[in-house]
Design a binder for these strands. Structure first.
Lengths: 70, 70
DNA sequence: ATCCAATGGGGTAATTAGGGGC
DNA sequence: GGTGTCCTAATTACCCCATTGG
């Protein structure tokens, strides 16, 4: 790979509060998911968590069920 | 903010208890509706359900019968 | 350096899920 | 056929305060 090891990741990161708003849960719950390994987490040097928008949206979509139309 | 997507809440989500309060039924009944496919269900990684407010309101309206003015 | 809002960690109460039977 | 209530187990919500982020 001639590509540099460090890809400048234009990956949009979300705060626990943002993820919590998407699922309508408490930010602490999102932290619990990360701790349980259900969600990949990026840690800041201070210990705060950041989540990948793409991963969160994919998880959200995979857990969404449409109502049957009749 | 060049971050698209999550800036604004896509839709307001309701808990089973909230939906049950709107219909004056037991939360268990709302769960049955979701299981029957009458209501779109959004599951949290923990297994709890969340419902779209717009969808619930639409269902509520569709089940509402108004008296005919004559 | 200060400000303010949000996050983390711990612990406890409330809600939810699932099955079973009326 | 559909709903309310019983049970237990799991998940989530809210409380505190110290620290982090911008």
């Amino acid at each position: 790979m001639s590509a540099p090891a460090i890809n400048r990741a234009p990956e949009t990161l979300l705060t626990p509060g943002q993820v919590a708003a998407l699922f309508h849960v408490d930010p602490k719950t999102v932290t619990r998911w990360a701790h349980a390994g259900r969600l990949g987490s990026l840690r800041t040097p201070g210990g705060h968590r950041r989540f990948r928008e793409s991963e969160v949206l994919q998880l959200l979509a995979s857990l969404t069920t449409e109502a049957v139309r009749r």
